[in-house]
Amino acid sequence: MIVYDKPHALLDVPLHYCPGCTHGIVHKLVAEVIDELGIEGETIGIAPVGCSVMAYDYFACDMIEAAHGRAPAVATGVKRGDPSKIVFTYQGDGDLASIGMAETVHAAARNENITVIFINNAIYGMTGGQMAPTSLVGQVTQTSPYGRDPKLCGYPIKVCELLSELEGPEYLERVTVNSIPHIRAAKKAIKKAFQNQIAGKGFSLIEVVSSCPTNWGMTPQNALKWIEEKMLPYYPLGVYKDRSANEEGKKE
């Protein structure tokens, strides 16, 4: 009897991620959701530029690699080209909230019927640990060697809060994967984001507060603790927008 198996939507190949990185967990959650919804054959994923650039080698569904930050625009094209397809992007903080902010905001404003998985680990991992738009105040990175100074480079961007002011988006939720209960909640959110798309409800974005032990200079365990102690107070978990639920609420 098989009790547990690797999701079919995740290919059986070694991942290039560093030990202790949470990308692997989120990949698995996305793949499990694709399996459970039985949509692998109809799903097209868009990989970003950043640590998860090679996600196209890891998911079994069709994949497209986009230019840095442009995944939501590419996803828009795919979805408009064939609305019957299930289209998701998988993007990090630099990709989604720095260079790709315009594409992110406008895809949300259009309520583009796509699913966005947003990995917020407060750093550029692939290039070796530079400041991200979501790096915390005081956080030391390669390009904020004296700690992020808001007087020089502003404050970290809260993507869910920012997008929640738009009329457009259907669903925005922030989750994390630093503990078993949080991982379960994250999966539920990711599933809802895909279900929304299947139901034609529009733009869903799940922000996953994640760790980067390598570039944070921490052990994997301490990195998970750092999420709890430093990241979550600034990036509170929760649902930031659920338009359908709100509208149903209003009707009642």
Binding site: H16, C18, G128, T214
Partner: peptide
Amino acid sequence: LPSYGPEMRG
């Protein structure tokens, strides 16, 4: 002259 690549560790 170093080799340089995307993998941070390992």
